[in-house]
Design a protein around this nucleic acid. Structure first.
Lengths: 239, 239
DNA sequence: CGGCTACTTGAGCCCGCTCAACATCAGTGG
DNA sequence: CCACTGATGTTGAGCGGGCTCAAGTAGCCG
């Protein structure tokens, strides 16, 4: 169940067998959520944190005029709301973009980990800081990158993150999102996303169609996006 | 020295005298940085984390064309780069916007805290998650808010955050930034920031002049920004 | 007083938005 | 089997918020 989480953590540091066992024991059960369901709402009192096991999930905030900004896209192996363990509630909503399976980690068990497993605790801390680092890279995108750069960057990031958890083929991966959802991810309108995808396709860089991203020219894709994976901290070292 | 950090932490949870003492003991010394100095660069190997004691500091990333996006503004009492403790390096640069005094926390001492002080560790974890929450609110600003809303929101946020560490007067506070720096904070151009500030001033909402923000109509300022301080988690409770 | 930096304002442009029509496709029911 | 429906994608036309370029002003310091 937590295999993809282990892949993600072991990319960044060693994890002993006993730590792995503690982590497995910290998950109480799984829950399935239907497509489109917002299962965590901003402000709710939370006593568990959730690991995405299978599916696709996003965090988002809405504005009064109905416009929505997605804040992060979560792939299997990501903790969705580990932030709620120290924070006790969230500042945003969480929604399943496709039917998704979630692993539930009660806060008491996480609390026990912080008492007894300092190294494992630091790795959990690390995993929330990867979210923060992704937030910062997205701030750069929304603040300074053009539409074509934003989409190129999104496709680069997901290629790397999905690759870590073995969810890519050679040069493609499944991404079951609508163009409208992509517009909510990157601060654009659906119409402009459509035109920008066409541009990327006609330039022979990347195609997004029938829920699949096919990268035709990774070098140019990276160049357009100014993508540097350093912000994903993919180095194994003592933490 | 760490008084403002204590104000910030005690706003969110109890902190025992012994924990306070541990925290004081974790700081090895202070360093002064001159105005405009970038003292942490992306990718550098880091073995200490820094607390802002006095001054004003920002994190930022640059793009190849020379444009810059600031990611967060730090006020006294904020850890600037506690993220570097689990991450070991940063994904961005850190610069002093005015002459600033920084308290240095060696990572070995923070490591010791994670071994011996689980509750204090969770509070340090919390403080990095407040950064992440601020990042998310800024994502909403950059993705969906108009120029006037972005600036209004910035002035709201800083009024609250500076208030926590007692750096506000009744309805005003010092903010020694140029209009150009404000444009780098909120993904705008200096010219448009100038026009937008004029608009806010002429509407009698807020004035930003000679390094001071004067709020004339807090209710309208909040309304324009759609500001809701929930994302700052200002509730005292066990963490 | 001269030189620098920051602020201010005008004029014109463009990227991305809005509005609208139409195409495509997967259900769904008759 | 086709008609209907609703969601999603595509394309055109025109608009506008924020950008660029440029000139000028204000304030500070040597």
């Amino acid at each position: 169940m937590i295999e993809k989480l282990l892949l993600k953590l072991r990319l960044r540091d060693e994890l002993s067998d006993s730590e792995e066992a503690v982590l497995r024991g910290a998950m109480s059960h799984t829950v399935d959520h239907t497509q489109g369901r917002t299962f965590i709402r901003s402000g709710m009192e939370l006593t568990t944190s959730n690991l995405l096991i299978d599916g696709l999930v996003c965090r988002y905030k809405d504005l009064a005029d109905g416009s929505r900004q997605m804040l992060e896209l979560h792939v299997p192996g990501d903790f969705i709301d580990l932030h709620s363990f120290p924070l006790k509630r969230l500042d945003h909503n969480v929604m399943a973009l496709v039917p998704s399976t979630i692993g539930v980690f009660p806060h008491e068990r996480l609390q026990a980990i912080t008492q007894d497993e300092p190294h494992l605790s630091r790795l959990l801390w690390l995993s929330t800081l990867l979210d923060a680092s992704i937030h910062r890279e997205w701030l750069l995108s929304l603040g300074r990158r053009s539409a074509i750069q934003r989409l190129a960057h999104l496709f680069c990031e997901l290629y790397i993150r999905l690759g870590i958890v073995k969810l890519t083929q050679q040069t493609s991966y499944r991404l079951p999102l609508t163009q409208s959802q992509i517009s909510e991810l990157k601060g654009l309108t659906p119409v402009h996303v459509n035109r920008t995808l066409k541009e990327l396709r006609e330039q022979g860089i990347v195609t997004f169609r029938s829920d699949t991203v096919s990268i035709h020219d990774w070098t140019r894709l990276q160049a357009v996006a100014e993508f540097d994976p350093a912000y994903l901290f993919m180095e194994k070292r003592p933490r």
